[in-house]
Nucleic acid binder design. Structure first.
Lengths: 136, 136
DNA sequence: TTATCTGCAAACATTTTGCAGCGAG
DNA sequence: CTCGCTGCAAAATGTTTGCAGATAA
């Protein structure tokens, strides 16, 4: 059985985790890299990509893909309040929304099918008022 | 006000629309391009991208972005059934699920915030029964 | 006629990978 | 000591764009 080796604790990895812990929102790998650079960290971009990728794989961070194809990451707050966004696919504006009972519903539904350790992604996109006007 | 000129009816566009009409599933621009090439069409890849892009903008086709960042298109069957999946993140198994009232709820919520042309992605992942047992 | 569409290739943006050296365990 | 991690730059991927010529209206 090929088991994955567990990541080593390195300065870079610690800094990345720290950055993730500080800001709880979704940011692209490049944005996280920028954040680190501004904190006088010297992590390389590729390292950030590799770290986020591995963290996402092990479930320590959440990853979503935007309409433009960028992958965004944020720290995963297992079981924490978990809110979703309503995002304008044109101008990128986003507002937090509440999805009542969704968590409970999803967990129950999954259980019905024999699934456990449920996680979910709910992405709602549309055109905000202004962009709707601008579009014709 | 800059109004967009309406697309001309060209051979290429017709072929693309025809291909979209034939297969109702989501495919990437490159895949649609392949399909056309196999039907001895000579449309260029860029043309396919441009056509799909314009069709998506005018709401004639649906576009979604995959986890790997590819954009997939399919003909838009306005008001068609739209189902979601419950997927096992370990073995990849997936089952279709029904999310009652979600569509309506999402549309209404979005409207509350002034959003229109709503689309959404609901991804529910977990461990299926077998994988849960196998996991240690 | 004229503005849009097309095809090609070059440009782009994001992410991945090869490789040599560093460093955690 | 070993093997994974890092940084750099080069490669890969998917998509967009510039341009000159073809073509719908």
């Amino acid at each position: 059985m090929t088991s994955k080796p567990k990541p080593r604790q390195t300065r870079q990895r610690a800094e990345i985790l720290s950055a993730l812990a500080t800001a709880g929102d979704f940011r692209s790998a490049q944005q996280w890299h920028d954040v680190l650079r501004h904190e006088s960290s010297t992590v390389g971009l590729a390292t950030v990509y590799r770290a986020l990728q591995s963290l996402a794989e092990s479930g320590e961070v959440d990853a979503v893909v935007t309409d433009s194809g960028e992958t965004l990451y944020r720290r995963c707050e297992a079981g924490d309040e978990h809110h979703h966004h309503l995002r304008c696919r044109r101008c990128g504006a986003a507002e937090e929304i509440d999805v009542p009972d969704f968590e409970a519903w999803a967990t129950q539904l999954a259980a019905t099918h024999g699934y456990s350790s449920i996680d979910h992604t709910v992405e709602i996109t549309g055109l905000c008022g202004e962009c709707a006007k601008a579009t014709n």
